[in-house]
């Protein structure tokens, strides 16, 4: 059944297919156009380089007049990401505009990675290390990058042996 929100999401989907920005990808889950999964590859020449960061996006019938809820599923160490994975990003809150789409949301998050806003930190520890102990900050970020690879690794292991849980 078509609604403006769903039509718009199908356009966003097409755009991601035909003209995806570098280092990001996104796709609705198989049974629900309103719920998307996404991956952002950590941008080169930043501490996040090559990390595979997984996200989920949840839209409602108000989209694009209301922003989606966006959440990191991968563990992050970033001044503007809460422990829950939720983001503190102005364009997803008070500076949202209905002109944004999935592609521009993801590129904004991608550029937020190396350009944190330390004035209103969601993770105070990350913000302090970023300000005063940059090397320590980079080390902590690299740890999350390596953990994001473990998730990839989980994938390949479970492909061969399914009972590898617990």
């Amino acid at each position: 059944m078509s609604t403006p929100a769903k039509r718009r999401l199908m356009r966003d989907f097409k755009r991601m297919q035909l003209d995806a920005p570098s280092g990001v990808s996104a796709l609705p889950v198989p049974d629900n156009v309103m719920s998307w999964n996404a991956v952002i590859i950590g941008p080169a020449e930043t501490p996040f380089e090559d990390g595979t960061f997984r996200l989920a996006l949840q839209f409602d019938e108000q989209y694009p007049n209301k922003p989606p809820t966006v959440k990191f599923l991968s563990e992050m160490f970033h001044p503007n990401v809460y422990a829950s994975g939720e983001l503190c990003l102005d364009i997803l809150q008070n500076r949202w505009s209905p002109t944004y789409d999935v592609s521009s949301i993801l590129t904004s998050i991608q550029s937020l990675l190396n350009d944190p806003n330390i004035l209103s930190p969601a993770n105070v520890e990350a913000a302090n290390l970023y300000k005063d102990h940059r090397l320590q900050y980079i080390k902590r970020v690299r740890e999350t990058v390596e953990k994001s690879w473990e998730e990839d690794d989980d994938d390949s292991e479970e492909d061969s042996e399914m009972e590898d849980d617990d």
Partner: peptide
Amino acid sequence: VSLQNCSSEYGNNGESSEAP
């Protein structure tokens, strides 16, 4: 793990990031 020190203010943002 460990990311406990979250500020409770949510949505109180500067003007830093603009959608590209």
